[in-house]
């Protein structure tokens, strides 16, 4: 089954990104496909390469990158929401790409399920 995942919140302030990551890992472990993870609202902040959490804490951005590397997951950051918050190509972490909101609607159309994580 193809899942699309929408992440509404940035890392650390809310558990949303951590929950979404755990969901994605469990889904691929069960043999499902993550069609796309779309980052919207403050969720775009998951994609900054400038974050440096303390070494004894998890690095949410790196966890997303690892998911993308290991399972070829498409991580898409909304261009409009990103521009509003200063997430652009210049500080985008590798493994993420910036595209339009249409990518979210498209994911809703083509994935079998869309699961949202937010505040």
């Amino acid at each position: 089954m193809k899942f699309a995942v929408l992440v509404n919140e940035g890392p650390y302030n809310h558990q949303a990104a951590d929950s979404a990551l755990q969901f994605c890992k469990a889904a691929v472990d069960k043999g499902h496909e993550i069609f796309r993870v779309f980052f919207y609202y403050d969720g775009v902040n998951n994609a900054t390469k400038l974050g440096e959490p303390p070494s004894d804490d998890r690095n949410v951005t790196r966890n997303w990158q690892k998911l993308a590397e290991d399972h070829k997951v498409d991580l898409v950051v909304c261009v409009a929401a990103g521009l509003r918050r200063g997430i652009t190509e210049s500080n985008l972490a590798p493994g993420f790409r910036i595209s339009g909101l249409g990518q979210l609607i498209e994911a809703g159309i083509h994935a079998d399920r869309l699961v949202t994580f937010g505040d």
């Binding site: 969901f23 890992k25 469990a26």
Partner: peptide, 9 residues
């Protein structure tokens, strides 16, 4: 989380 995935599926 695997159960979460099953519920969603």
């Amino acid at each position: 989380y695997a159960g979460f995935v099953d519920l969603a599926a």
